[in-house]
Amino acid sequence: MNYPGESAKHEQKRMETTKQKTISLGFLTVRKHPSRGYFGGFLVLNLLARPLEFHCTLPVQPTRAQQILYGATLDEFISGEQIARALILKAKSSLEVVFTDTLAALSGRHVQETPLIAIDGSWERSENTIGHPVSQGHELKSISALDYRFSVLSQYESDLQRIHALFHKNDSSIDLIEPFGRIEEALLEAHPAAKAA
């Protein structure tokens, strides 16, 4: 039996051959609405913070079987292996790194090759913001840099080096938190039903 990530790796390799060669950063968020399910949004920016691509999922409702069989790990399965994987694979740009404000989505790193890094920070959320899925608290490796705290799953610690290489080499001053506000606005445009109750 193939591990789900295997087919993803093949698919990703195929897609990478067609991806553009400009430096771009991914910003991924997953939100969980109490009744409408999970919403994933993925924004690809260049180093000047200009949008290159935006992808979002249709609302994802886990099946009853998934609810039972994944149990407490359901949020991570849906956020990482399903939504993060689906969205990152859709990117046509060559992604240096994907930042996420959703810890539960870090499991998406198991099923695709692009470094997936959680980032802490605060931004002015609207009253319509819905909550994040829950992470089960895997062992993380973290560093603090700039005004942020970056975290990865411990087995992907080397991904953290990519941040240094990226920003040092390109002298980018992009705000890494602000794009999540844009994703939220875009999700509300695409799915007005995603507003908080």
Binding site: P4, S7, T22, G40, N46, L48, R50, P51, L52, E53, F54, H55, C56, T57, L58, V60, T63, A65, Q66, L69, Q82, I83, R85, A86, L87, L89, K90, K92, A190
Partner: peptide, 21 residues
């Protein structure tokens, strides 16, 4: 044997013209 579906969620996406520098 009962298999969980491997289908990924459906997505919609847009690419935007990159503004000049």
């Amino acid at each position: 044997p009962i298999q969980l579906g491997q289908a990924l969620p459906k997505t919609i996406g847009f690419a935007f013209p990159e503004m000049p520098n």
